[in-house]
């Protein structure tokens, strides 16, 4: 089962596969907004920050370039869907947009293998962001 614990994986799978991705997108979006609420995750119900960071650390281990300040953010904001999500206030719409982006990644083969898990590039970048925060 790789290096992640079963609980972490389930958390991560749930997190990444469904709402977590959206929340991650939401997190990123809110980062772009100049506010003093850096620990945005803390205000989101049901988030497993540890799992997200664990995944992010694995992503950074395999792709150390993403640890450079702003690297993951730049790549994320280059994605049109994420760009649109950032500009959206409604969490539900934002969630859908990030999910769409993840699906589009899979369809286009933009897949990252992290400790055996096949995740979308968007998810990898969001979790890398969380790990560097």
């Amino acid at each position: 089962m790789g290096k992640w614990t079963r609980r972490g994986l389930i958390g991560a799978g749930g997190l990444l596969a469904i709402t977590g991705v959206a929340y991650g997108g939401g997190l990123l979006a809110c980062r772009m907004v100049p506010r003093h609420t850096p620990d945005f995750f803390a205000s989101l119900p049901g988030m497993d920050h540890d799992a997200l960071r664990t995944i992010g650390q694995s992503v950074l281990r395999d792709h150390p370039g993403l640890a450079r300040p702003g690297a993951a953010t730049r790549l994320l904001t280059a994605k049109a869907g994420i760009e649109r999500a950032i500009g959206t206030d409604c969490p539900q719409t934002r969630m859908t947009m990030v999910q769409e982006e993840c699906r589009a990644d899979f369809a286009a083969g933009r897949i990252v293998l992290v400790d055996g898990w096949m995740i979308s590039e968007t998810e990898a970048l969001i979790s890398a962001e969380a790990a560097t925060a």
Binding site: M1, G2, L9, G13, L16, A17, Q99, C102, R103, D105, F106, A107, G109, I111, L113, G116, W117, M118, I119, S120
Partner: peptide
């Protein structure tokens, strides 16, 4: 399995851990 994993992701159904 990688193709299945990609299809699951594309359909938004879940994620696959490659064994």
């Amino acid at each position: 399995h990688m193709i299945l994993g990609a299809e699951l992701g594309k359909a938004g159904l879940g994620r696959l851990n490659l064994g």
